[in-house]
Amino acid sequence: MFRSTLAKMTESAAKRLKTESGALAIGTHNGHFHADEALAVYLLRTHIPTYASASLVRTREPALLETCHTVVDVGGEYNASRNRYDHHQRSFTTTFPGRATKLSSAGLIYLHFGKEIVARKLAVSEDNEQVGLIWNKIYESFIEALDAHDNGISVYDPKALEAAGIDKKFSNGGFTLGAVVGRLNPNWNDEIPADPVAAQEMEDKRFETASLRIGEEFDRDLDYYTKAWLPARKIVEEAYAARGQYDAEGRILVFEGQSVPWKDHLYSLEEEQPNSGKPLYVLYPEKPTPDAKWRIQCVPVSKDSFTSRQPLPEAWRGFRDEELDGITGISGGVFVHAAGFIGGNKTREGALAMAQKALGL
């Protein structure tokens, strides 16, 4: 009750001062903050020039929100023409193209401004094919998790898990994207300044910290997908097209220069070419030097799975060096993991021979 009363007292003081400054203002709600509006505010202020010097107004008072240029996660209105991006109204059903998860304020801002953000990072126009590719990828890999978290959508169907008798084997520590921001809120028994303006300023500082924290994670994803993931696509495409020279069914994929992030691209290529054989083993040098050792890695059934499409032979697992050579009949063996999902050889030829023998060739 005290915290609620304090918040109401603060509205007409600290917030009105900010909106009277003349600066373009972004409005969002005060009180307990969440990852979605923290990221929404960050994306606008950091990546969209219009909002580079925008002030922040955290309030639930309709009159104050109406003075803001843009409002996210509060106000009961979704109208992009008015720069209103709330998702809490009963009639709201908007999703990202091709996805089923209802959007939060993070998803709404990314839906409308994400292509501009990606295009600026790549220094190309928004209609560039690469922009759309990364726009979709970042939503699926990052933003959608925030949308689901804020809308109370579980990764798995709880009823299906219960029916199957599946329980968590251990705690993951709560380190979801939403939890990273959530734990920056004050504790229930933290001391609050008696002065309502000071109390609101303290809360706002916590929000600013949270916004920067989730923003840093977004920027890391943006850097990865534009600087590493995207350039890797062409390399994977070339290796995928050439795999028939090692096995008529295309079950061996070889990266000649160095390993690249290949899983996402491989699964995408398989979806685009459903009648083509699926690789079971991926070969690559440990580093881009002529004397590098080579790895043979089994393709997992899905990106995050520990189950391989075809593990290396059970008889090879857990052995190393000369002992492994004697079992495989292939010289230069380095190791085969006890779980059978990866192995190594001193040379490209040795790793290729291991892959072909594992396939029974």
Rank of each mutant, 00 (worst) to 15 (best):
E129D: 01
Q297L: 14
A23G: 00
V197E: 11
S21T: 09
R317V: 04
P186A: 12
S276H: 03
H47Q: 09
Y224S: 04
I296H: 15
N172Y: 08
V57D: 03
L269G: 08
E11K: 15
A198W: 07
A119G: 03
D219M: 11
G22K: 04
S81Y: 09
V181I: 10
S12R: 13
S154R: 06
R348I: 11
V336Y: 01
G333Y: 14
P288H: 02
G350P: 05
A63H: 00
A100G: 08
S4T: 15
K227W: 10
A123E: 09
T59S: 09
A80K: 13
L177K: 03
A228E: 05
E20N: 10
N275C: 08
S305M: 02
N275T: 08
V334W: 05
D86K: 02
D204H: 11
E322P: 01
D73Y: 06
H29F: 03
L222Q: 01
L312T: 06
E286N: 11
D36Y: 13
A339K: 12
G215E: 10
S211G: 13
V131I: 12
E314I: 09
G333N: 10
W294K: 09
P274N: 10
L283F: 09
L177V: 14
I26E: 02
D86L: 09
F255V: 05
A338D: 14
K303S: 00
G132M: 05
I153P: 02
T94D: 13
E203P: 04
I48E: 11
T67I: 00
K18G: 01
I214L: 02
F175G: 12
E37Q: 03
L352P: 12
R243H: 07
H88D: 12
S154Y: 07
S53N: 08
N79D: 15
M354Q: 13
Q245R: 03
P313T: 03
K263A: 03
Q245C: 00
D223I: 04
A54H: 09
H112W: 02
G76V: 04
K15V: 15
Q356I: 11
S12Y: 10
I26A: 03
P158S: 07
W294Y: 14
V41H: 07
D223E: 05
